[in-house]
């Protein structure tokens, strides 16, 4: 039984600053991290392996520098990792990315479950999980908050929708995407850190993955980014500071009433 965790190395967008003068994004010194949503997928992969035996494997598609994120996975407790990197993967949108990841997963035998985070911090599309499921022909359960059991070739999960939970049962192998309610990711252990430093990170290129050339990278990507600009907010603002909270409260209530809301107070 193998548990495959798909991760992405992303710029830490929480560290992003906008230059107040030029209104442009300051990119210098933004660290690269494992997509925070993927850390829940990693933790779940490690827990499933501990619970049901087997092996946890993390894979990522990215530039050679993504090697650093895979070492972090090992430090956390993931058994083995694979880096998918090739100039031919450049220009991949979610469709080509999913194809590349699914080709790698096909090469791994005895896969029970593919685990993805709900979305990536930078692109926030959430599309790669469902698209991998399609390419592999596996059933998928999205937004999983709890894995109840894996037994007799089935996985039973609870997933979150906007206003309800669903308990679902899927045959294996399957794909799941997980939300942060599912667990609390562990920190790297000292032993793990030592192991990660020494680890040899296998590199798979397009030649290793096989499949159709035209499905990779830019040729396999129907969408393209046509333009990009810094998000600016312009609005007329009235800012007020009163000495007494009573005055502030009055000001707010008056304003709400002026805007046409039915509200009464004394």
């Amino acid at each position: 039984m193998k548990f495959i965790v798909c991760i992405k190395q992303v710029p830490d967008t929480m560290e992003v600053k906008i230059d107040p003068k030029t209104k442009r994004i300051v990119r210098e010194g933004i660290p690269s991290i494992i997509n925070p949503y993927d850390t829940y997928a990693l933790e779940e992969g490690i827990r499933l392996k501990e619970r049901f035996q087997g092996e946890s494997i993390a894979i990522t598609m990215g530039p050679p520098q993504a090697d650093a994120s895979l070492r972090e996975c090992i430090a956390m407790g993931i058994d083995s990792v694979i880096l998918l990197s090739d100039r031919a993967f450049a220009g991949s949108d979610t469709l080509a990315t999913s194809y590349t990841l699914s080709q790698a997963i096909r090469k791994i035998s005895d896969v029970s479950l593919v685990i993805c985070g709900r979305e990536a911090l930078d692109g926030s599309t959430g599309q790669v999980g469902p698209e991998i499921a399609e390419f592999l022909g596996f059933p998928i359960i999205t937004y999983v908050k709890e894995i109840l059991n894996i037994a007799n070739g089935f996985v039973e999960c609870v997933r979150l929708m906007e206003d309800h939970y669903e308990t679902l049962k899927s045959p294996l192998p399957a794909v799941i995407t997980v939300i942060k309610e599912i667990n609390e990711p562990r920190l790297a252990s000292l032993k793990g850190l030592l192991k990660s430093k020494k680890a040899n990170i296998p590199l798979w290129t397009k030649n290793d993955l096989g499949g159709e050339d035209k499905s990779y990278g830019q040729d396999g990507s129907p969408t393209k980014v046509a333009d990009i600009w810094a998000h600016e907010i312009k609005k007329e603002v009235k800012i007020i500071q009163h000495d007494e909270p009573e005055q502030s409260a009055e000001e707010i209530l008056n304003q709400i009433k002026d805007w046409g809301f039915a509200i009464k107070w004394k």
Partner: peptide
Amino acid sequence: TFGGNLMAMI
């Protein structure tokens, strides 16, 4: 995109 810092046209 990019945590809401950027807008992209696709």
